[in-house]
Amino acid sequence: MVESLLHIVGAWGAFGIMVAILLGFSVFFTLYYSDTRDREPFAMIITVLALTLCLSTVALFPVDIFLVSKTLDPSTGLRRGWATDEAIASMQLTVRIVYYGKERAVGVCLGRISSQSMVCLPHCFLSLYAALSSGPAPSY
Rank of each mutant, 00 (worst) to 15 (best):
H123G: 02
A43D: 15
A130E: 08
S139A: 13
D38V: 01
H7E: 14
M18R: 12
L51P: 01
S127G: 06
P138M: 10
T94A: 07
T52Q: 01
A11W: 01
M1D: 10
S134M: 07
F15S: 08
Y140D: 11
S115P: 04
D73G: 00
Y140T: 08
T57Y: 09
V27W: 00
Q116L: 12
P62T: 05
G135V: 12
K102C: 12
I8T: 04
F125M: 07
A11V: 06
E103R: 14
G101Q: 09
A105D: 11
M1L: 10
V95Q: 01
L5F: 09
S127E: 15
Y100W: 12
L110W: 06
I46P: 01
M18L: 13
K70H: 08
V106Y: 10
T76I: 00
L53D: 05
L31K: 07
G10V: 14
S133E: 11
V95H: 03
Q92H: 10
V9M: 09
V2E: 14
E86H: 05
A83G: 02
I17A: 15
L93P: 04
V9K: 07
A50I: 09
L23E: 04
V98M: 05
I65M: 12
F15R: 07
V19T: 12
I45P: 03
L60H: 04
M1Q: 10
C124Y: 10
L6R: 15
V119G: 00
G101D: 10
T71C: 08
D64Q: 13
G135E: 12
D38A: 05
R96G: 11
V108M: 11
P74L: 04
W12T: 12
A137T: 14
G16E: 14
H123Q: 06
L72W: 03
T52G: 02
